[in-house]
Design a protein around this nucleic acid. Structure first.
Lengths: 143, 143
DNA sequence: TATAATTTAATTGCACACAATTGAATTGAA
DNA sequence: TTCAATTCAATTGTGTGCAATTAAATTATA
């Protein structure tokens, strides 16, 4: 009885192109982020803070699907660059609040120029981009 | 003149859900791969070798979108586990050939049980999965 | 043919990701 | 109220990813 190994082929898995595609697009960000001396992880943390000023490590982790093991050093490096402050909450000393600084806020203008540069080298039609977006969030919503 | 920062929101970027989704799905593989004492990176290297027995580091890198900086240690660890041999090509000493062993080949049966387990917890219809697949490869094809 | 340019993998150094553990603060239950 | 359980961030250790450099082998060129 011959076993069916088709599912084991790279070409038949969804995870692999997702993994490869994710890394390739992050790679497109790199030269633009280098100009701001930011990594992609630092950039998405700042995106949260540009939108809401203050956030706890826990909430940040929920938004970015990352844990404190990743976020603690990223927040420390953003703090070292002067873009973020790290303060324990007065109500609950366990909670660390990250807050954007003036200097971090000032990066927003330069950062806003990056997404359009990426968008144009991703060759999807607006409809395709919308559909991809929908499918990715459908998966994220059920994990 | 008010600047438009909408593109800077996590919810308006394609890269972020791609990045998050990729990591979340790899995370689903982890408990199954743990049983085989494999990481996801080791697993996709083996997937190539299950399909074609022998591969150079260069060709492997092209298939997986990874470079020797990543692949060298992964191949060494697979060699240490006895699943792969690493040999210089006789025709061109620069080229390293990775080849699957009997023991590596034997993992294929257990590994074949993993993809169906992942597929069922990704809540897309077959049509949606097909469309996602097409869109991801469209992006990969033009990067 | 000599040597310059290219190709290939390995190495180095840095920044994640993440599981597991730790320790402090808070909450809950007896 | 006390102490057990929980929550939260930090730490530790391992394995990637990747840019940059190195070194060896091969190919191209003068």
């Amino acid at each position: 009885m011959e076993k069916n190994y088709d599912m084991l082929k790279l070409e038949n898995q969804l995870c692999f192109p997702l993994y490869a595609c994710s890394r390739e697009i992050v790679k497109k960000y790199r030269p633009h982020l280098d100009e701001l001396d930011l990594t992609y992880t630092q950039y998405i943390v700042l995106m949260v803070l540009w939108a809401q000023k203050r956030v706890s490590v826990k909430e940040l982790g929920e938004k970015l699907y990352l844990d404190s093991g990743t976020l603690t050093p990223v927040l420390k490096s953003l703090e070292a660059k002067g873009y973020v402050t790290r303060t324990r909450s007065a109500e609950d000393e366990r909670v660390l609040i990250a807050e954007i600084t003036e200097s971090g806020e000032a990066l927003k203008d330069s950062a806003a120029e990056i997404p359009p540069k990426i968008a144009c080298c991703v060759s999807l039609t607006p409809e395709e981009a919308g559909e991809l977006y929908r499918l990715l969030y459908k998966i994220l919503g059920t994990m």
